[in-house]
């Protein structure tokens, strides 16, 4: 039986870990290689690294960060942020990523998912889906780090992306990101109902109890950043709580 994966997320800009609220107001949260090694020690099952730099210099710094993290990490590493093409994905994989997340570029060119899956395999192709609640109900896809609402239905997009080749969905609630209000469970349930690929819950975790809820809503993995970076919750704390609630975790 597959265990629930606990995934600390490193948002990286110019070689440093940063964290904000709703993708804005970024604060320094340490050295990515040190953070990665610490999370592996705590029992993390995987790491996600999101490049949130906005410049070409930042992009090449991110490749160096991936190389540095890979040299120290014996865990799966998903890297996303700014991936526009197969060449971008290849560069990240060569630097040490195991999976590549695509967001904005896939929305603009959905066939990119099929090209990535064909060249690197579906297990390597992650759809990073940022979803914002609509006032009238449901969710829409947001891109460009949340700056642009697309009007596209998030649940329908999840289904289409999987049909095109995505092997995993990193599902972030834009409304909950950094809010500590808990994952958007309705969003998780809605997407879990239409796709068969693993679903990573992201955005809003304030502690182990939220992670238990996300798993019960259909997530196979739970991602968090702030609560791990501040040290108030460790990966071991989360696993203890999941186990207490009868969920299987890696020991």
């Amino acid at each position: 039986m597959l265990t629930v994966r606990i995934i600390p997320c490193l948002d990286v800009r110019d070689g440093r870990v940063v964290k904000g609220v709703r993708f804005q107001g970024l604060r320094d949260a340490g050295d990515p290689v040190e953070r990665a090694a610490e999370y592996e020690r705590q029992g993390a099952d995987e790491l996600t690294l999101l490049d949130v730099s906005a410049t070409p210099e930042g992009r090449s710094a991110a490749l160096d960060t991936v190389r540095g993290v890979r040299a120290r990490l014996a865990l799966p590493l998903t890297v996303g942020g700014g991936v526009r093409s197969e060449a971008d994905a290849a560069a990240l994989l060569e630097a040490g990523a195991d999976k590549v997340g695509v967001n904005t570029a896939a929305v603009e060119d959905p066939a990119l998912l099929a090209r990535l899956a064909r060249r690197f395999g579906a297990q390597c192709t992650v759809l990073a889906l940022d979803a914002a609640a609509r006032p009238e109900g449901g969710w829409e896809v947001v891109v460009l780090s949340g700056r642009k609402r697309t009007g596209r239905d998030a649940v329908a997009w999840a289904r289409e992306a999987v049909a095109r080749g995505a092997g995993e969905i990193l599902l972030t609630s834009w409304d909950r990101d950094g809010s500590r209000a808990g994952y958007d469970l309705d969003l998780l349930r809605a997407v879990a109902a239409v796709v068969r690929v693993p679903l990573v819950a992201s955005g809003g975790a304030d502690g182990p109890a939220h992670m238990v809820e996300a798993v019960r809503a259909g997530a196979g993995a739970v991602l968090a950043a702030s609560i791990f970076h501040t040290g108030e919750t460790t990966v071991a704390d989360v696993k203890r709580e999941l186990r207490r609630c009868g969920l299987e975790v890696r020991t």
Binding site: M1, L2, T3, R5, D45, E46, L75, P76, D98, K99, A122, Q123, C124, G167, E168, R196, V197, P198, G220, A221, R250, T251
Partner: peptide, 30 residues
Amino acid sequence: LPVPHLGWNRIEPEPECRLLEGAHVYFAHS
């Protein structure tokens, strides 16, 4: 089942195995 089989699962080696030991290990395959 969700495919790919993606994540950590437990392996059970046959008793005669010399290198393999029981553990959670990471899979990513269809």
